[in-house]
Design a protein around this nucleic acid. Structure first.
Length: 112
DNA sequence: ACGTTGACGTCAG
DNA sequence: TCTGACGCCAACG
């Protein structure tokens, strides 16, 4: 698909995203940090941006912003992402945000 | 090489 | 809580 020579960072990001279990979410900053580039949250978004939304191989919908909200409305995939997450059990409030303390998945914490 | 843009994050008011 | 400013780094013209 869009597998053009991925760099080390991209590789790590994709691996981390794939490690997110259904019904859980991660933030861009969290992914960037674990991928080895603290503060490179924007680059995480860019990497996912180059990925097809129809590609079920990558659970890109489980990556949201640090406020627990959807950041893909500006590219037209907001409704799709929210729908996919809700189908997995993630609950959004009236403000379109979910409770990160409840749904955030941290690979470094083996508690779940 | 340079300036602008962007699926973001953090700090100050 | 919401807004504005700055930083981050890769992609684009």
């Amino acid at each position: 698909m869009y597998r053009y020579s991925v760099s080390e960072f991209k590789r790590r990001v994709l691996a981390l995203v794939r490690a997110i279990p259904p019904g859980r979410v991660c933030t861009y900053g969290q992914i960037a940090l674990l991928a080895g580039k603290p503060g490179a949250a924007r680059q995480v978004g860019m990497i996912l941006h180059g990925w097809s939304p129809a590609d079920g191989e990558l659970p890109w919908q489980r990556v949201i912003n640090a406020q627990g909200g959807i950041s893909t409305y500006k590219v037209g995939w907001g409704e799709l992402q929210r729908g996919l997450l809700e189908a997995e059990g993630v609950v959004f409030d009236a403000g379109g945000r979910c409770d990160l303390k409840r749904f955030r998945y941290d690979p470094t914490v083996t508690s779940g």
